[in-house]
Design a protein around this nucleic acid. Structure first.
Lengths: 240, 240
DNA sequence: GTCTATAGGAGGATAGAC
DNA sequence: GTCTATCCTCCTATAGAC
């Protein structure tokens, strides 16, 4: 259930080849822009294969996501479990919790480095494009995860309001979503100005640093920290 | 060039009604899932109207984006100009710079509150879905902006490496992209667990706090700040 | 400028041979 | 299980009347 065989890459069963081809094409060109003809052609299967194995294009889409999301979130929960078991009374640090949240998404189930990269892009793409079809899947796959991590963050950030925590998680996801598609962006003409390499560990470290700093600042009541250069005057000011 | 007349909402010229309808439908259902039939029908125009006014669906898509992106980024640059003029020798604070970056995107050109919301969703959707067609538009519309804001951030964060700054901007955009679509998400079954209201000022304040805290943490060499509860041991640790 | 009508093609899905 | 052939819908784009 939480394992994906390493042999599925190419030349496997037709069903698996279809899922792989769909994942790749969805990631590269979008779901709507990918026809069954392109999928079956890429998978070296017949046009009727999708309907035979899955029943419809919609069912195929669902399977493409479920196949990866479930193991990814199980990995996250397992990492959090491990942390909470090993950290004893005082609980894990904020950085450790963020790491448990981000790492499985970046590696997308250990060992999937090459295969996962297509799904990483796809997830980033779809996350901000929540079509009706995927709503139920996302809702059910992420509900427990959100609850568990919100509780863990609440423990790391005493005094944080529930609303702040939910916003904080939202921002954490935004960082991740945006970060997920980096490694595979075409090196020329990226949307803004970034074209980082594939260094997962460095990316992870930056996400964790940024996320932890952002959360602490979000939650902190009135900036009792001395490292500020200019005091942050006019925070709710009259600009524009 | 940097102004959008307030009369364009409904009942305007056919051309404008087409743009409005396309913007709304693109935001709600995606670009590929939106046919010219739906657009012209929603705009109370004839099926041939799009091809008459724009030449093709692709040209219409381009116009939908250009109409909003250009004023938005001009507004951001103007806000940054204002800041740098008024802040004198020491320059604007980090929070002020972030505010100049985020506010025009949240209000999407002052006065557009209602009309802008569709485009906000559309922008969030497309940002992580950089189709070939929009690459050149995004590249040209955001190049100057990225350079100017990176320079402004560098001034607020002395000692920051160029690479850290680029990653920081990347994360800032991720927060924004994710945040942009919040206000319009259907209240039931959101992807994670958040359904905030339409309070732009509160959202902006949270984005600024989180972004500023994240940037400072990302850039800070080795955490010389005392407000940390547990010291952040094992930052590059052995998890997973 | 705006309409009707239609060309010409691509889409998802299915029936039935093998 | 896999293939060929085909149905029917929907698409973009255009021609030409008004």
């Amino acid at each position: 259930m939480s394992e994906i065989p390493a042999t599925e890459k190419a030349g496997g069963e037709t069903r698996t080849r279809l899922l792989d081809a769909a994942e790749r094409l969805f990631a590269r060109h979008g779901i709507d822009a990918t026809s069954l003809r392109k999928i079956t052609s890429e998978a070296h299967a017949n046009l009727a294969a999708v309907n035979y194995h899955f029943g419809s294009k919609e069912a195929l889409i669902r399977e493409v996501f479920l196949r990866r999301l479930h193991p990814m979130n199980e990995e996250r929960l397992a990492a959090l479990d491990r942390l909470e078991r090993e950290s004893g009374e005082k609980g894990p640090s904020l950085e450790e919790v963020l790491r448990a949240f981000y790492l499985p998404a970046l590696t997308l189930c250990s060992g999937l480095e090459r295969e996962g990269s297509d799904f990483r892009r796809l997830l980033a793409r779809v996350w901000s494009e929540p079509r009706e079809l995927l709503r139920p899947i996302f809702a059910s796959e992420f509900r427990t995860l959100a609850e568990r991590f919100q509780a863990a963050l609440a423990r790391c950030l005493p005094g944080a309001s529930s609303e702040d925590l939910r916003w904080g998680i939202f921002f954490l996801v935004g960082i991740l979503t945006h970060g997920l598609q980096i490694p595979n962006l075409d090196p020329q003409d990226p949307p803004v100005c970034l074209r980082p390499g594939e260094d997962v560990e460095a990316t992870l470290a930056r996400m964790v640093r940024f996320g932890a700093g952002g959360l602490r600042a979000l939650v902190r009541e009135d900036d009792g920290c001395p490292f500020r250069e200019e005091g942050g005057k006019r925070e709710g000011g009259d600009m524009q």
